[in-house]
Amino acid sequence: MALYAERINAHRFALVAPLIAPDAVFWFSDGSHKGIDAIERAFAATWATLHDEAYWLEDRRWLTRDGASAVCLYRFCWTASIDGTARSGGGRGTSVLERRSDGWVIVHEHLSATPAQACLTAGPAVGAVCNSSPQS
């Protein structure tokens, strides 16, 4: 998951794509994205909105890990400039990974705002845009 967050910060989907299954399903605040092409479009739309973005994961908790699959819960956080205004935000995430012939890949990701946040929807991969950092 750390490598995934690191590669997201490059804003180059070609670096992120090998970590995502071609048939993955991602659920973001703007809807569901099925398949690598739809997921790439969702990331591109977000990256077009967020300038100078930094993205990271906190409080990772593995619910299950075995030789075939793994499920990770986490808080995602970001800072960026949107329309020239510094913003930060985040939410909670769940990623389901599966071991396939070419290694571990994300088969499902679900990002959402934390219940206490009152935020504006910004783009598919961010979950929410807030004026302050997310609270635990």
Rank of each mutant, 00 (worst) to 15 (best):
C119L: 05
T49N: 04
A80R: 01
S101N: 15
R61S: 11
W27N: 07
K34V: 12
V107F: 01
D52S: 10
A122K: 06
G103H: 04
G127N: 02
E58M: 02
G84P: 13
T46V: 07
T114F: 14
V105R: 05
T94H: 12
W78S: 01
A80E: 01
P124Q: 07
V96N: 09
S81E: 11
P22N: 07
S132E: 11
R99Q: 14
Y74P: 02
D66G: 13
Q117G: 05
L3N: 07
C119Q: 08
D30S: 08
A10D: 13
L120W: 03
C77R: 10
S69H: 09
T79L: 03
Q135L: 15
G67K: 10
R75N: 07
T85M: 11
S32I: 10
E53Y: 02
F26I: 00
A38Y: 02
A125Q: 11
A17P: 11
Q117M: 08
R87W: 02
S101Y: 15
C72Y: 02
S132F: 14
D66W: 14
H33F: 08
L97G: 12
W78D: 00
A17F: 04
D52Q: 13
D102V: 15
E109M: 02
K34I: 09
G89P: 00
V126M: 11
A44C: 09
Y4W: 09
H108R: 08
T94N: 07
R65F: 10
T46W: 07
P124M: 05
G91S: 05
R41C: 12
A5T: 03
A17V: 06
C130Y: 11
V71Q: 08
D102M: 15
T85N: 10
Q117K: 08
C130G: 06
F26L: 01
G103K: 09
R41T: 15
R7F: 15
G93R: 01
D102I: 14
E58F: 07
N131R: 11
R12P: 13
